[in-house]
Amino acid sequence: MDVRRLKVNELREELQRRGLDTRGLKAELAERLQAALEAEEP
Rank of each mutant, 00 (worst) to 15 (best):
L37V: 10
G24S: 01
L37T: 06
G19M: 07
K26W: 12
M1K: 03
K26I: 03
L11F: 05
E31W: 04
E13A: 12
E40T: 10
L29P: 04
E38L: 07
A36H: 13
E14C: 06
V8H: 06
E13G: 10
L11G: 02
L20P: 01
T22A: 13
R5F: 10
L6E: 05
A39M: 09
V3N: 15
M1G: 00
L25A: 15
A36K: 10
R18L: 08
A30L: 13
R18T: 01
E41F: 06
R32H: 00
E10N: 03
P42R: 08
A39C: 14
L33W: 01
G24K: 00
L33D: 05
L15H: 03
K7Y: 03
L15D: 01
E40L: 05
Q16N: 15
G19L: 03
A35N: 08
D2E: 10
A35Y: 09
A27K: 12
T22S: 14
R4A: 09
R12Y: 11
L29I: 08
R5A: 09
L11M: 15
R4G: 10
D21L: 04
L6T: 01
L20C: 11
Q16V: 10
L25V: 14
V8T: 11
A35F: 09
E13S: 06
E38N: 05
E38I: 15
Q34M: 13
E13R: 06
L37K: 06
R4W: 14
R23I: 06
K26A: 12
R12K: 10
L33R: 02
R17C: 10
K26V: 12
E41R: 11
A39W: 06
M1A: 00
E31T: 09
L20G: 06
L20N: 03
E14T: 03
A39D: 14
E13H: 14
K26R: 13
L6D: 01
V3L: 09
L37C: 10
K26Y: 11
R18S: 01
L20Q: 09
L29Y: 01
A35W: 04
E10P: 01
A30K: 11
A27F: 04
R5S: 09
G24L: 00
N9T: 13
L20K: 12
L37N: 01
E13M: 13
G24V: 00
L15Q: 01
D2F: 05
L37A: 05
R12Q: 15
E41I: 07
A39R: 11
A36E: 08
A27I: 03
A39S: 11
A30R: 10
G19E: 10
A30M: 14
R12W: 04
L37W: 06
E38Q: 12
R17A: 11
K26E: 15
T22L: 06
E31K: 06
L37S: 05
R32T: 03
E13Q: 07
V8D: 13
E14L: 07
E31L: 11
A27W: 09
L33T: 03
V8M: 15
E40G: 09
A35P: 04
A27L: 09
V3T: 14
L33G: 03
G19W: 01
A30D: 15
Q34T: 09
A39N: 12
R23D: 14
L29M: 14
R5Y: 13
A36I: 00
L37R: 07
G24R: 00
L6K: 04
V8A: 12
Q16H: 06
E38C: 11
L11W: 00
L33F: 08
E13D: 14
D2R: 06
L15I: 02
D21M: 03
E40Y: 00
R5W: 03
Q16S: 11
L6M: 14
E31A: 13
E40V: 09
V3M: 13
R5P: 04
Q16K: 11
V8G: 06
G19A: 07
P42V: 11
R23W: 06
R18Y: 15
Q16F: 05
E40K: 13
L25Y: 08
L29W: 00
N9E: 15
P42E: 12
L6G: 01
E40D: 14
E31G: 12
A35D: 12
A36L: 04
R12F: 04
E38A: 06
A36P: 03
R4V: 09
V3K: 08
E38F: 03
A36D: 06
L29D: 05
V8W: 07
L37Q: 09
A35V: 11
D21W: 01
P42W: 04
R12G: 03
Q16R: 12
V3I: 14
R4D: 14
L29C: 08
A30Q: 09
E10Q: 09
R4Q: 15
L6R: 02
L11A: 02
L15T: 00
R23S: 12
V8Y: 15
N9F: 02
L33C: 02
K26D: 14
Q16G: 13
N9V: 08
R4F: 15
A27R: 12
K7R: 07
V3C: 15
A27N: 15
A35C: 13
E41L: 10
K7V: 05
E14H: 04
G24F: 00
L25W: 06
G19P: 01
R4T: 15
E40I: 08
Q34H: 07
V8N: 07
Q34F: 09
T22Q: 11
R17N: 03
E14F: 02
E13P: 02
V3G: 05
P42L: 05
E38P: 02
E28G: 04
E14P: 00
E14W: 05
L11R: 02
L11V: 05
E41A: 09
L37Y: 08
A30H: 11
R12V: 15
R17E: 08
A36Q: 10
E38Y: 09
A30G: 09
R32F: 00
R17K: 15
